[in-house]
Write a protein that binds this DNA or RNA. Structure first.
Length: 500
DNA sequence: CTAGGGTTAG
């Protein structure tokens, strides 16, 4: 910022001669730092320029398009349209990107019309941006039409189409497009892998990543982040460790903040608490993301006391928590039975940290109270919430009712849930269990018939584990493994040890 | 100076 101010004064001193050179530097430096205040500063500078060049306009468009205020890009274009220089081929991709982030197809089409008027309607970059625009608003057919009508397509055109399908209904269609690509870049692979991860198709993501390595493509941070997420969900420690050492080889243990976050999460989800802690300790800077991954990891391992200690350490080190941090903190308190602590943190969330709780936080509190058996308090809490309860909240309440055999409240929660999500098979199973445990056999039959009538089924629960480098997948009631009997008897003895 | 990919929660 100091440097920017210095440059600003040099512009004033040197007159308008070199305005473009200096302004390009200053505005670029201000707009590439992801900071809303520097963007504001850049705009203030921009306002002082008597006749900004198209280039300078474009720099502002680019900055706004990928900022939290894409609308500003369109406002500024309006100003350019009235007072400014003519737009060039760089202008419209930025503006279309702004429309994509807004999800505003109508304005995007107006911008496209403008592009035509200035002779850039058939520009590849413009058309690629159009594909992304339609894709971002789930208009896959329109995106396809633009793609089909293009006279010339580059890798980005194909990749954009892959992204459209991957975000849309069919990941298989995305893969078909991907397979038909004349050539693929790292980004093409990353887009497809990210698509698999978003649809929870983690195995396919890892398989494609292996293909990518065979094709001698160098993965970048974005690729690795997606694959780390897949490893975390698969419990694929081997691949996770391999990615970790790959990163170390490349950057000597100084990772990008988001990579560090993803690594911590991966190790926790794969059960390596020690390695997760080591990555965390080794991070040169600990932002809110690293801390939150740390806290949620401690939460998922039931380490409530350490979680609270870590949270307090985070606060005293001057890092500000965000909404996600509190989800980790609250859910950690829930799983360690720390009801009072959890409730106190929920109160402090607004009073001490100025974070407005959202529906997810309310859900955490319902879960916190419910799992501890405070069903009535949970009901009161739901009634007093400033927002309408959603399926997650009724689900948490229903589960608690099943555990504590509260049929009355359970029925209430279930009726709301059935209203919201009639296709949700899991909810019928919980309700069924509630009636069964309460010995209400006539009701059990009624629920079963209701399930048949609605035609919903609960897909059997499944999980997987990696042992000695071999990944095993199993479903509820699975007896196919030769050591099933031994495993069950060992488990039974562990459980009886807990109970005694 | 343009387009394409991305983490932490339940």
């Amino acid at each position: 910022m100091q440097e920017a101010k210095l440059l600003h004064s040099r512009i004033i001193v040197s007159g308008l001669h070199h305005q473009d050179i200096y302004l390009r530097q200053i505005i670029t430096s201000l707009t590439t730092t992801p900071n809303p205040s520097s963007l504001l500063h850049a705009h203030r500078l921009f306002d002082h320029i008597p006749h900004p060049s198209t280039y300078i306009y474009n720099t502002m468009f680019r900055a706004y398009a990928s900022s939290p205020y894409p609308h500003q890009a369109l406002e500024l274009y309006h100003h350019m349209h009235v007072h400014g220089p003519l737009p060039d081929n760089y202008t419209f991709p930025f503006l279309l990107k702004a429309c994509s982030s807004l999800g505003d197809i109508r304005r995007g089409e107006i911008v496209h019309g403008q592009a035509f008027k200035h002779g850039f309607g058939y520009d590849v970059f413009v058309q690629n941006s159009l594909i992304i625009l339609y894709g971002a608003s789930c208009r896959v057919k329109m995106a396809r039409r633009v793609f089909d009508e293009m006279g010339f397509r580059d890798i980005a055109s194909w990749t954009s189409l892959v992204t459209c399908y991957a975000n849309g209904r069919s990941i298989e269609s995305a893969r078909r497009v991907f397979d038909r690509m004349p050539e693929r870049s790292v980004v093409s692979y990353s887009a497809m892998i990210a698509g698999y991860v978003r649809r929870s198709r983690f195995k396919e993501a890892v398989v494609l990543f292996r293909d990518m390595m065979v094709a001698k493509m160098e993965p970048n941070d974005s690729t690795i982040m997606s694959v780390l997420c897949a490893c975390a969900n698969l419990g694929d420690t081997n691949m996770g460790k391999w990615l970790h050492s790959f990163l170390s080889r490349k950057t000597k243990n100084q990772f990008d903040s988001r990579i560090t976050t993803a690594l911590i999460d991966m190790y926790f989800k794969c059960g390596s608490i020690k390695k997760a802690l080591k990555v965390f300790e080794g991070a040169k800077e600990k932002h809110v993301g690293e801390w939150t991954a740390m806290l949620s990891g401690l939460a998922m391992h039931g380490l409530g006391t350490q979680l609270i200690e870590a949270f307090e350490e985070m606060i005293s080190s001057g890092v500000k928590p965000n909404g996600v941090t509190f989800v980790a903190l609250l859910s950690g308190c829930t799983h360690s039975g720390l009801v009072n602590e959890g409730m106190r943190y929920f109160d402090r969330m607004t009073s001490d940290f100025g974070i407005e709780p959202n529906i997810v936080h309310f859900g955490c509190v319902v879960d916190l109270l419910g799992r501890a058996g405070f069903i009535e308090q949970a009901v009161h809490f739901i009634r007093d919430m400033p927002v309408k309860a959603n399926a997650a909240i009724w689900g948490a309440l229903l589960s608690a009712c099943r555990v504590y055999k509260n049929v009355e409240v359970g029925e209430l929660a279930a009726s709301w849930l059935i209203n919201d999500e009639p296709w949700n098979g899991a909810l019928y199973m919980v309700l069924l269990g509630l009636y069964r445990d309460a010995g209400r056999w006539d009701e059990v039959e009624r629920v079963k018939e209701e399930m048949k009538k609605v035609g919903c089924r609960k897909s059997p629960g499944c999980s997987l584990i990696e042992v000695d480098g071999i990944c095993r997948e199993f479903v509820v009631g699975d007896k196919s493994h030769p050591l099933t009997f031994e495993a069950c008897s060992t488990l039974a003895s562990i459980i009886s040890e807990f109970e005694n």
